[in-house]
Computed example of a mutant assay.
Amino acid sequence: MVAVGAAHAEDIKLGILFGFTGPLESITPPMARSAEMAIKEVSDSGALLDGSTVTPVRADSTCGDAAAATAAAQRLVTADHVNAIIGADCSGASAAVLQAVARPNGIVMVSPSATSPALSTAPDDGLFFRTAPSDARQGVVMADVLMKAGLKSVAVSYSNSDYGKGLDEAFEPAFKAAGGTITISAPHEDGKADYSADVGALASAGGDALVVIGYVDQGGKGIIQAATDSGAFSKFILSDGMYGNSLIKAIGAPLEGSIGIIPGAEGEGHTKFLTMAKAAGVDGTSSYTGESYDAAALIMLAMEAAKSSKSADFKGKIMQVANGPGEKILPGELAKGLKLLSEGKPIDYEGATAVKLIGPGEASGSYRIYTIKGGTQVTDYYE
């Protein structure tokens, strides 16, 4: 049955709720621009819901301030009248917005980068999805990476946030089960001016390397800076939140040889996205850019599948367009996907990150393992 209101063109608005200020501010602009690439692609095509246009509306989640994220989301819904939200970017902000804004207002959220395992079981009324995998998987992958690298004894410093605590809780048992030893596991607070005391405790415990689960523009960077200044550690293991050129610029040569983990996929879709991003002046290799493009694309494709821009109507179509069966749709082929859906034909949206949604609507996910060599992140393998 075709939903009421699909018979005429609309100006659909999509909120982009990312941390334009805060601990991830250096990686947020490429993420936002990647989502806007998908929005422009669809809007320019005229293929969505009888020629509807789509307009992005940015709002600042701050990443770390749940109250600010909630207020920003509320404005998106009540003042800007968005049809759905791409975001939030960070786990704590996503959890707060989901319960305080999305559920009460029946608004779909698709986060490209909120990874806390707690979000897998949060009540969501079928409104919350994510194109990034849960840290329940990243913790296992991180443990495997360390064992392959011969690093069997590590100290851990994690951000005292939903993200940091969630990933630490996934990593520690996986590493111990694999035969590894954790000499110390200590939280760090973001926003401190001096991390020398934190690093002193980590150094006393020792280890083959220091695992840093944190934010690239905040406490994680501070921990590494203090550790290199004091010579406490010479090798670092970097979680996904620590991926960014700003870290390499800030720390420099002492990061050489450090190993990092970031969600990522290889294949035709990834290659096409990188080409499109370069043409648009966007750094497609930056964190969660492909996931941001995919989050926006899934929302708009689901709208066409439901013949409605209303969250209540299209929330049930997101898993369907993401997983098929149907014709595979890659970046740059959104108009094709929309046309097939308008004809009642199924699609399998593969996108930039080989999208496959599982369980409560989160990515099954693969990870790119890299080593910092010569001041850049060199890919070692995918897992």
Rank of each mutant, 00 (worst) to 15 (best):
Ser230Asp: 12
Ser258Thr: 09
Ser230Phe: 03
Asp162Phe: 04
Ala197Cys: 00
Lys235Ile: 03
Met276Lys: 09
Asp240Lys: 02
Ile261Gly: 02
Ala232Lys: 05
Met242Gln: 13
Ile182Thr: 11
Gly267Ile: 07
Ala203Gln: 14
Pro263Gly: 09
Val216Asn: 11
Ala226Gly: 07
Lys192Ile: 09
Ser204Ile: 00
Ala279Trp: 06
Ser230Ala: 15
Ile237Arg: 01
Ser239Trp: 01
Met276Cys: 00
Ser287Glu: 05
Gly264Ser: 11
Pro254Ile: 12
Ala155Gly: 13
Met242His: 04
Ala265Phe: 06
Ile213Leu: 14
Leu151Arg: 07
Gly260Glu: 07
Gly252Phe: 13
Ala277Glu: 10
Thr228Arg: 10
Asp198Phe: 02
Asp208Ala: 10
Gly244Thr: 03
Glu266Ser: 15
Gly207Phe: 06
Asn245Thr: 14
Gly257Asp: 07
Phe273Val: 12
Gly267Met: 08
Thr285Glu: 14
Val154Trp: 01
Ala155Leu: 04
Pro263Phe: 08
Leu238Met: 10
Gly214Arg: 03
Ala174Tyr: 12
Ser287Val: 05
Ile261Gln: 13
Met242Thr: 01
Ile248Glu: 08
Glu266Thr: 13
Gly281Ile: 04
Gly267Phe: 08
Thr181Trp: 00
Asp240Arg: 00
Val156Met: 03
Thr285Val: 02
Gly264Glu: 02
Pro263Lys: 05
Ile237Gln: 00
Ala265Met: 07
Lys192Met: 13
Ile237Asp: 03
Ala209Glu: 06
Ala227Lys: 08
Gly166Cys: 06
Gly191Lys: 02
Thr285Ile: 01
Asp217Pro: 06
Val199Arg: 10
Ala226Thr: 08
Gly284Ser: 09
Ser286Gln: 14
Lys165Cys: 00
Thr285Gln: 12
Ser196Lys: 11
Lys272Val: 09
Ser230Glu: 09
Gly180Val: 10
Gly220Ile: 05
Ser230Ile: 01
Ala174Val: 11
Thr275Ser: 14
Ala170Pro: 06
Thr228Ala: 14
Gly219Glu: 10
Asn245Gly: 11
Gly180Glu: 09
Pro254Gln: 12
His270Pro: 00
Ile184Asp: 07
His270Ala: 15
Ala265Lys: 03
Thr289Met: 10
Asn160Gln: 14
Phe175Ser: 11
Glu266Arg: 03
Ala205His: 05
Val156Thr: 08
Leu255Asp: 07
Leu247Gln: 07
Ala253Trp: 10
Tyr195Met: 09
Ile224Thr: 02
Lys249Ile: 00
Ser159Gln: 10
Tyr288Asp: 12
Gly166Glu: 06
Gly260Asp: 06
Asp198Ser: 11
Lys272Ile: 13
